[in-house]
């Protein structure tokens, strides 16, 4: 049985992790326009959040963005590691997320067969 009171205990438990969070970590950005949602963005995002939770990757941030005009390649998922180019993966399925997190987010190896775009670092 879960209750709101559990959050108090989590707050105590996670105090020490908060410092880790403030570092500039890796970002995962998922397209959540109508096109993205219709193509399964919610399940992809759930898979990403679940996988990060299971691996306890506190310093990875998951964000959302709207439609960027590549609707036919949704679900689009971008990975930005600090000081590396922004990589866009296309036609991402929930089953691909584990591999993207293990290979790219954690180990820095880009998964070439899923890539649909690459943007050199903006800043």
């Amino acid at each position: 049985m879960k209750t709101l009171e559990d959050l108090k205990a989590l707050r105590e438990k996670l105090k020490s992790d908060i410092k880790v969070r403030q570092n500039q970590g890796t970002k995962i950005i998922i397209g959540m326009g109508t096109c993205g949602i219709a193509a399964g963005a919610r399940e992809v995002m759930s898979a990403a959040l679940d996988e990060l939770a299971v691996r306890k990757l506190n310093d990875v941030q998951v964000q959302q963005t709207g439609c960027i005009g590549m609707c036919e390649k949704e679900v689009l998922l971008d990975v930005i590691r600090p000081n590396e180019p922004r990589i866009t993966y296309g036609n991402v399925k929930p089953a691909d997320v584990k591999r993207i997190i293990a290979d790219h987010v954690v180990n820095g190896r880009i998964i070439e067969d899923l890539v649909v775009g690459k943007i050199e670092q903006e800043s």
């Binding site: 049985m1 879960k2 209750t3 709101l4 009171e5 559990d6 959050l7 108090k8 989590l10 707050r11 438990k13 996670l14 992790d17 908060i18 969070r21 959040l49 679940d50 990060l52 939770a53 299971v54 691996r55 306890k56 990757l57 506190n58 941030q61 998951v62």
Partner: peptide
């Protein structure tokens, strides 16, 4: 209300908080 219990520095994207939220909502 949930964030008041959780405190300023934390939010629902924290892995363990997220897993709690998931279980709580389903329940």
């Amino acid at each position: 209300a949930a964030k008041e219990i959780l405190g300023e520095e934390m939010d629902f994207s924290f892995p363990e908080v997220y897993l709690w939220l998931d279980a709580y909502l389903k329940q």
